[in-house]
């Protein structure tokens, strides 16, 4: 049972994390193509706030405060009682709402459909963008070579 919970949590952590930093345009385009939106009630209407970001001294030591970032969050409940939470970077209330609805739907039998139509394509787009950046960085890696003088 505990094990099942952990697997559930790690899957939920993955989809919430994906939506938190995914580009809003890409996510909303996929979400807007999904029809039959469920009805819901707000538990907490979308609100914009700040989160203090911490770093570690020398990258590995004790924590210190670096500065804040904007985050928008909300919570809602579907008619069947499923609760969804949205936490997204930035100040977009529509994106937070979509994230909370998707989080709720992923706990219902609509999960496969939402995974297929929204989350998987979104994850692919995000991964592609990351790979592209890493590829550009790789092209700027210095290849040292040593000049050899004289004859052997």
């Amino acid at each position: 049972m505990a094990n099942e919970m952990n697997i559930g949590n790690s899957a939920r952590k993955a989809w919430m994390g994906l939506m938190a930093s995914a580009p809003e345009g890409a996510m909303m385009a996929l979400w807007d193509a999904v029809d039959d939106r469920p009805k819901f009630d707000w538990l907490r209407a979308p609100e914009v706030g700040g989160v203090m970001v911490r770093g570690r001294m020398a990258g590995t030591g004790a924590p210190f405060n670096v500065g804040e970032m904007t985050v928008t969050r909300c919570s809602l409940v579907l008619k069947d009682g499923t609760v969804g939470h949205g936490y997204v970077q930035g100040r977009s209330k529509p994106k937070a709402e979509a994230a909370a609805l998707i989080d709720a739907l992923m706990q219902t039998e609509a999960a496969d459909r939402v995974q297929r139509d929204v989350l998987s394509p979104l994850a692919d787009q995000v991964a592609q963008a990351k790979t592209k950046r890493a590829a550009k960085a790789a092209a700027t890696k210095v290849e040292f070579f040593t000049m050899v003088r004289g004859e052997d």
């Binding site: 989160v51 970001v53 570690r56 804040e68 960085a137």
Partner: peptide
């Protein structure tokens, strides 16, 4: 503007060792 934002909390310390490095 920052002073008008409610503080939701503090993050876990970011792990710069896992950074996707551009440089």
């Amino acid at each position: 503007y920052r002073t008008t934002l409610p503080r939701f909390g503090a993050s876990l310390p970011v792990e710069t060792g896992d950074m996707a490095c551009d440089r």
